[in-house]
Design a protein around this nucleic acid. Structure first.
Lengths: 348, 348
DNA sequence: GTGAAAGCGCTAACAA
DNA sequence: TTGTTAGCGCTTTCAC
């Protein structure tokens, strides 16, 4: 059985008060006493009981991370970075997957009433920001990637409109005019998809083009399978895009797969741009041009927001809207020149 | 401020004992009383304080999951399934990333002395099983994927030797004789890599071939980058394999990337088999043949083991060694016939 | 600089 | 069937 403060105190011949001071370093302790206590601590291998500490202090040292799913590379990568950043702040992350279900997102927010977590980072999918923040009682919340949260919670995201605009503009500059957009989710109250579509439209209009609904393929979810089905349905319907802007890299990779199957040359017949900067995108054939958000900074800033709210709950700082930088990384899927080795080294 | 048992009791005009009984359903309560208490519960929106409950009961409802990293697709997928399975058992998962560092794995195991978690699922990388289990005091541990844990903890894994054997045998049947093995990690006490290498050797020897050290490329980690570097170094050294067995899909996808760069046709010039059955493998070009462990079953059985140990700590059931099924999924990277549409639909 | 003791919210042994 | 209360391990106020 593991030892308690009391055991250490008995061994060191001091009171629990003193041991507690040594452990937490919160008050001055005579050097000689401290050494004796430390020896006892080591001998017994003392570990503080977190439940007791939390009961006393009202904090758990846990923060919740709610994402649609770990399964997909983007969220997997992001979650990894958040766990890492939390560790540096001595927080432990508990992860919940919502699978894009409104019910799961609601359950999760109610659950936080159990005060399991000191704060919550949510990457919302199905719930609108007003419902999200209205439900999160008593706990600081940071929203990832949602559109304007009505000033109800801190928010950390890239500028999706501008980023999507840049992606489409890049394709337009390369001379593409029939650009399919794979990824709108009109049926969901999903701000991210709305914004990316808006940016796409903005770039088209600036170039004097009119968005063509026939080139916009809504998807139910954002996996490779959906991207594959989207492009296949387009081609099967006789639509012949000369480029695809996919709202996530996974969608793009699914589309790329179908392009190969149908014998379309990428980028010659079909240029392809994705979104998210996942690691796979670097290794596809050809490598995928993609909008890369600075994920590490997203994680870092989200934790920072949470820390500020948790440690200064009284502060009346208005909700922050933090915009994280991104960049368009041009690779072979949209620009032959970007990947010279393929052509140069090719033997056949 | 949130309400406590005492508040509910006051409102309902009963004692805390009765409220506690209603909440937990642990003792019989008169129907009329229960209704009154329930009403008070609802009115106040009562949520139990987990810290207090844990301090009292010694359980936290939390289980730890220690994996090298969320970042990589295999562990991301697996973690997602474990979180899901845990949710069904009303457990919450806290995730720790060890990044393959022995120090992190040690820290983690010491940390559990803080009794934050009721149990621990570890996918060890750097630490041998004896050290792992010796350090996990007071907490049930399930090992994922390690080799024989010396009977010190439950273990859930596929049969890596057989699976690797099958992968190599598949390549041999296709007429390949110079099969490179990318993925040994001789410098780490990593049982998984050892086993896959052993299975690879077994298949070679059965076919009358002698393992050629020049065809075995050790790697520092298991990412696409490492796979790419491994194949590149092989080719740069003038070695010409006709097939590659990569110990993870990520390694295989990295190698595939280099194969494309160097103008090698896959599978004609170079057949490729990976390991892990990650989702990306399905969408690469060509799709990757891979050994697919039943990940859902790994998650399910690991949780089951933990539940048994946690709820019957006294039981003297010896450590279990649970073998999870796997299958070799043959796709285009090792067999032209497996992916006819690519060739058939190709126009150029 | 150190000790004694209250009390965080909950469960369950003991009483009624 | 329900009420009273000790105590889980810790932090911290109050006293010395």
């Amino acid at each position: 059985m593991s030892s308690r403060l009391k055991d250490v105190a008995a061994l060191a011949g001091v009171s629990v008060r003193t041991v507690s001071n040594v452990v937490s370093g919160s008050a001055a302790v005579a050097e000689e006493t401290r050494a004796r206590v430390q020896a006892a601590l080591d001998e017994l291998g003392y570990r503080p009981n977190l439940a007791a500490r939390n009961l006393r202090g009202g904090r758990t040292g846990l923060i919740g991370l709610a994402i649609p799913e770990l399964y997909s590379p983007y969220f997997g990568e992001l979650a990894g970075l958040i766990v890492e950043a939390a560790q540096q702040r001595s927080w432990t992350v508990v992860i919940d997957q919502t699978f894009g279900s409104p019910e799961a997102e609601r359950r999760l927010l109610r659950g936080t009433g159990g005060r399991l977590v000191d704060g919550l980072i949510i990457s919302p999918w199905a719930l609108g920001p007003q419902e999200l923040t209205a439900r999160a009682r008593n706990v600081p919340v940071v929203l990832l990637g949602e559109r304007h949260p009505l000033g109800l919670a801190d928010r950390v995201a890239i500028d999706n409109v501008t980023a999507a605009d840049e992606a489409t503009a890049h394709l337009l500059r390369a001379g593409r005019t029939r650009i399919a957009a794979i990824g709108p989710q009109p049926q969901l109250d999903n701000g991210t998809a709305h914004q990316r579509l808006a940016g796409h439209h903005r770039a088209l209009r600036r170039a004097g083009l009119t968005p063509d609904p026939a080139l916009e393929v809504p998807v139910g979810s954002l996996h490779r399978r959906d991207g594959a089905e989207a492009l296949a349905s387009l081609l099967d319907a006789g639509v012949r895009p000369d480029a695809v802007f996919a709202f996530t890299d996974e969608l793009a990779l699914g589309a790329l797969h179908v392009a190969h199957e149908r014998g379309l040359r990428v980028p010659d017949d079909l240029a392809l741009v994705g979104f998210d900067g996942i690691e796979d995108a670097r290794y596809s054939h050809p490598p995928l041009t993609t909008v890369v958000p600075d994920k590490r900074q997203i994680a870092e800033r989200a934790l920072q927001c949470l820390a500020d709210r948790i440690y200064s709950p009284a502060s009346k700082v208005p909700p922050l809207d933090i915009v994280i930088p991104h960049r368009l990384e041009v690779r072979g899927s949209s620009s032959p020149a970007a990947h010279p080795t393929v052509a140069a080294a090719r033997k056949d």
